[in-house]
């Protein structure tokens, strides 16, 4: 699918800062996984974090901090073996959440030509995350299809977050 819409610049900034909510961050990550241009913008923006980290007023560490770290260097490392499930149609952030492939998703039809599946998020996430499957030619009215372009088909798969406002 040709990408017709890129995240807002303020959104890219907040993503790089790490201050987006999990559901929204996943939507942005899904875009980034397939958009090298935005990814390199993110790398540039992360230099802001690098510079601020260098400029921050350092807080002294516990006297034994380095020795503590040295002891941990010898600990065995647990590595997660990830099942290779990268179907070409699914980027990594989504593949992880969907589990198997798109065929395994329990879609729920919410409107003619539009099916939805709720994706898991952490308990502390403020918004919920849904995957939408939109038939060719259908407009996704809630996200203003003009900005996203029409889906050339066979099906458009879009992650969307629904933000609920909850006190932190």
């Amino acid at each position: 699918m040709k990408i017709a819409h890129h995240p807002d610049r303020a959104t890219l900034m907040s993503y790089a800062a790490g201050s987006l909510d999990e559901a929204f961050a996943t939507v942005v990550a899904t875009h980034l996984a397939s958009c090298a241009e935005c990814r390199s913008r993110i790398r540039e923006t992360e230099e802001i974090g690098g510079n601020l980290l260098e400029a921050i007023d350092a807080v002294p560490l516990d006297a034994a901090a380095f020795e503590r770290a040295m002891r941990r260097l010898n600990e065995p490392v647990e590595t997660l073996v990830e099942p290779e499930q990268r179907k070409p149609s699914l980027s990594r952030p989504l593949a992880r959440l969907v589990g198997g492939g798109l065929d395994d998703v329990a879609w729920k039809t919410v409107a003619p030509g539009v099916a939805m599946h709720r994706l898991p998020t952490s308990k502390a996430a403020r918004g919920s995350l849904r995957l939408l499957k939109i038939a060719p030619g259908k407009k996704n009215s809630r996200t203003r299809s003009r900005r996203h372009g029409d889906h050339p088909g066979p099906y458009g798969i879009l992650p969307r977050c629904v933000r609920t406002v909850r006190p932190r």
């Binding site: 999990e22 996943t26 990550a29 993110i42 952030p93 998020t121 502390a124 996430a125």
Partner: peptide, 13 residues
């Protein structure tokens, strides 16, 4: 207490 996967997936790319 949220998942950093959305970041780690892209960092590793």
């Amino acid at each position: 207490r949220q998942s950093p996967h959305a970041y780690e997936d892209i960092d590793d790319l």
